[in-house]
Nucleic acid binder design. Structure first.
Length: 480
RNA sequence: CGGGGUGUGGCACAGUUUGGUAGUGCGCUUGGUUCGGGACCAAGAGGCCAUGGGUUCGAAUCCCGUCACUCCGACCA
């Protein structure tokens, strides 16, 4: 037993020892990605991609239920098109990748690989929307984008990443604002109910908003180490892009109007968020709704007659309701236990000769390793309940982490003290609204503003930095 | 982009200081015994030592460049 424990501990670096190394160990050991020969471009392996497909499917259903349609825009953006909106091009310029040649021919105009597709959607909407009858347009696309980042980490920051970007245009500002808020809520609901990950909804400060936006909203999740991770954003553009791209339509009174616009996105970073929210020292822990395998069936003493047959029978039966696999390899049972824990499979089903005799099996939860001896007669109901319970437990655990690591602070000193004593977390403190104070807090304490949460608390009357009257409570923190 | 570390069979590493023609463990293949928490025995297969150049009779080892990974900062989904 001591030996076994030793081997398991050595399998990956423990979180407490080195959280960053733990993360990359899990990513590799759970077979989510592999590195490629281009820095920051990762091979997403079948198991990792299967998680992404489950995220896509369930998110896409929610988009479509709200009337959105999927489209596909080109990979390339001509330089002149990218430059039409000034703030936008300035914001993205440092990380844009350029194509200058087609084969050996120099291109008449440089093309960039899309870092985001606002400009393409703008061009398209300008060309195709003419009347108020054409509005709203609620488009979304699932694609890859490229941002030439300096430092990269699998899922959290890669040069090429997969995402969805919704781009909508509306006849009125009110409609566009409502869309922005609605989609932020969709993201928050998705994170909480599908990924079992609590998030803070809020607005980004002026300095932190999307290049070209009037307002940027975001959901912030907290990772196990207390650092924040932006899990989704939703932007309200007003008519800024519309004016730059001449996106007009004729309203009911036959007047020419500019369109009102939004965009919103989530990325493969969500997979990184899952890993760092729920994972433990035995590896990945997957939320049941995005687990490619929800139940792994492990035959015990498989050489004994009838065991493999029974296991196969269970797989066929349970596959009607769950994502189920069995491991019939001749690895030892212990090896399989460790393997599927590493991969974060929510439930393990053990079936051996003793179980068959008693018409039962053993179910083991990934999150806490609790064992349940369950009759084969009502197995489906038990699994359903356990998956549900496990999902809720993941949420509660993550919420507990946030509660433990939320520091309400009334002074710079208090912020420093909390961070020093308890580590990274969400610092709640009042702010006057001046960028100068935002920068100063960052400089003095190391934590930047994450967002101005919708759920405001009145901690004090004055800004934590300058002492002038406070306008908002801000969540401050270190971020990925 | 600044600072540190690393690159040697699929994986984790030793060998580099002091140049002499590559080794260990795990994994893999085959056969057998095992099987309720990472089993064991036996026999095998697998490496122009990241890459380009240089020094040398001779380079994994010394020198110069490049690339990638990784950690810590600054920037970002």
């Amino acid at each position: 037993m001591a030996d076994n424990n030793k081997k398991m501990v050595e399998a990956i670096t423990s979180m407490e020892e080195d959280f960053a190394k733990w993360y990359t160990d899990v990513v590799k050991k759970a077979e989510l990605v592999d590195y490629s020969s281009v820095k920051g471009c990762m091979v997403i392996k079948p198991y990792g991609y299967a998680i992404w497909e489950l995220i896509q499917k369930q998110m896409d259903e929610r988009f479509k239920a709200l009337g959105h349609e999927n489209v596909y825009m080109p990979l390339f953006i001509p330089e002149s098109l990218l430059q039409k909106e000034k703030d936008h091009v300035e914001g993205f310029a440092p990380e844009v990748a350029w194509v200058t040649h087609g084969g050996s021919e120099p291109l008449p105009e440089r093309l960039c690989v899309r870092p985001t597709s606002e400009t393409l959607f703008c061009e398209h909407y300008a060309a195709t929307v003419h009347s108020y009858r054409d509005l709203p347009k609620l488009y979304n696309q699932w694609c890859n984008v490229v941002r030439w980042e300096k430092t990269t980490r699998p899922f959290l920051r890669t040069r090429e990443f997969l995402w969805q970007e919704g781009h909508t245009v509306h006849a009125t500002a009110e409609e566009a604002v409502a869309e922005t808020e609605q989609m932020l809520n969709v993201y928050a609901d998705f994170c909480e109910n599908v990924l079992n990950m609590p998030v803070v909804k809020g607005r980004k400060t002026e300095s932190d908003k999307f290049a070209g936006a009037v307002a940027t909203y975001a959901i912030e999740a907290m990772m196990h180490d207390g650092k924040a991770l932006q899990a989704g954003t939703s932007h309200y553009f007003g008519d800024g892009f519309a004016r730059a791209f001449n996106m007009t339509f004729t309203d009911k009174e036959n007047k020419l109007q500019y369109m009102h616009q939004t965009s919103w996105g989530t990325t493969t970073r969500l997979i990184g968020a899952i890993i760092m929210s729920h994972g433990d020292n035995n590896g990945l822990v997957l939320p049941p709704k995005v687990a490619p395998t929800q139940v792994i069936v492990i035959p015990i003493a498989a050489h004994k007659p009838g065991v493999n047959e029974k296991a196969q029978e269970l797989v066929e039966r349970l596959s009607k309701r769950f994502r189920v696999k069995a491991d019939f390899s001749d690895n030892s049972a212990g090896w399989k236990f460790a393997e599927y824990e590493m991969k974060g499979v929510p439930l393990r089903l053990e079936i051996g000769p003793k179980d068959i005799e008693k018409n039962q099996c053993v179910l083991v939860r990934r999150d806490n390793r609790e064992k349940y001896f369950v009759s084969l007669d009502n197995l489906e109901e038990e699994i359903e309940t356990l998956l549900d319970t496990l999902g809720k437990a993941l949420y509660e655990k993550a919420a507990g982490n946030i509660a433990n690591r939320t520091y309400r602070c009334a002074s710079i000193e208090e912020i420093k003290q909390n961070l020093a004593e308890k580590g990274d977390g969400f610092v709640l403190a009042m702010w006057c609204g001046e960028e100068e104070c935002e920068d100063k807090v960052k400089e003095l304490t190391g934590v930047g503003s994450r967002c101005i949460p919708f759920k405001q608390e009145h901690l004090s009357d004055t800004c934590v930095c300058c002492g002038k009257p406070a306008k908002h409570m801000v969540v401050w923190g270190n971020a990925y």
